[in-house]
Computed example of a mutant assay.
Amino acid sequence: MSINYLLTWNCKHLANAEKREDIEKTCNEYGYISPVICTPEELLGG
Results as ranks from 00 to 15, higher is better:
3 I>R: 03
6 L>I: 02
20 R>M: 14
2 S>Q: 08
26 T>H: 09
35 P>C: 01
46 G>T: 00
25 K>A: 09
21 E>L: 15
9 W>H: 15
23 I>W: 07
14 L>W: 03
37 I>E: 09
45 G>T: 00
2 S>D: 10
10 N>W: 02
38 C>K: 01
29 E>V: 04
27 C>N: 02
11 C>T: 15
19 K>F: 07
33 I>W: 06
43 L>C: 05
6 L>Q: 03
45 G>E: 04
2 S>A: 00
20 R>V: 05
42 E>M: 12
30 Y>M: 15
6 L>W: 02
3 I>K: 03
44 L>T: 01
25 K>F: 12
21 E>C: 09
33 I>C: 09
16 N>H: 09
38 C>D: 01
41 E>G: 04
36 V>E: 13
7 L>M: 08
38 C>V: 00
6 L>D: 02
31 G>D: 14
16 N>C: 12
14 L>P: 10
17 A>I: 13
39 T>I: 12
5 Y>H: 04
41 E>N: 09
40 P>S: 03
12 K>R: 12
2 S>I: 01
46 G>D: 04
9 W>C: 15
9 W>N: 14
38 C>G: 00
20 R>L: 15
11 C>K: 15
29 E>M: 14
41 E>D: 10
13 H>S: 12
24 E>F: 08
23 I>A: 00
36 V>W: 13
8 T>N: 12
28 N>H: 05
37 I>S: 07
4 N>F: 01
30 Y>N: 13
8 T>E: 14
13 H>Y: 04
15 A>V: 09
33 I>S: 10
15 A>Y: 07
12 K>T: 07
45 G>N: 03
16 N>R: 10
37 I>K: 07
27 C>I: 01
7 L>D: 03
21 E>T: 06
17 A>R: 15
19 K>I: 07
8 T>Y: 07
34 S>D: 02
20 R>C: 08
40 P>R: 05
2 S>V: 02
14 L>S: 09
38 C>E: 01
29 E>D: 09
37 I>T: 04
25 K>E: 11
43 L>V: 00
33 I>R: 15
12 K>P: 09
16 N>D: 14
31 G>M: 13
35 P>G: 02
11 C>P: 07
32 Y>I: 03
16 N>T: 04
8 T>I: 13
39 T>A: 14
1 M>C: 02
21 E>W: 14
40 P>G: 05
38 C>I: 01
36 V>A: 10
46 G>P: 03
38 C>L: 14
21 E>K: 15
38 C>N: 01
5 Y>C: 00
26 T>A: 13
21 E>V: 13
26 T>N: 12
8 T>G: 15
9 W>F: 15
42 E>W: 11
28 N>A: 03
41 E>H: 11
35 P>H: 01
25 K>H: 10
46 G>M: 05
4 N>S: 00
24 E>Y: 07
7 L>C: 06
30 Y>L: 14
31 G>W: 15
23 I>Q: 05
10 N>M: 09
19 K>M: 08
29 E>L: 12
43 L>M: 11
18 E>S: 14
30 Y>A: 10
43 L>E: 02
6 L>C: 06
14 L>E: 11
11 C>D: 10
21 E>N: 11
44 L>I: 03
35 P>E: 04
27 C>P: 08
6 L>M: 08
13 H>K: 07
3 I>F: 09
3 I>H: 04
21 E>I: 08
45 G>F: 14
15 A>I: 10
3 I>A: 06
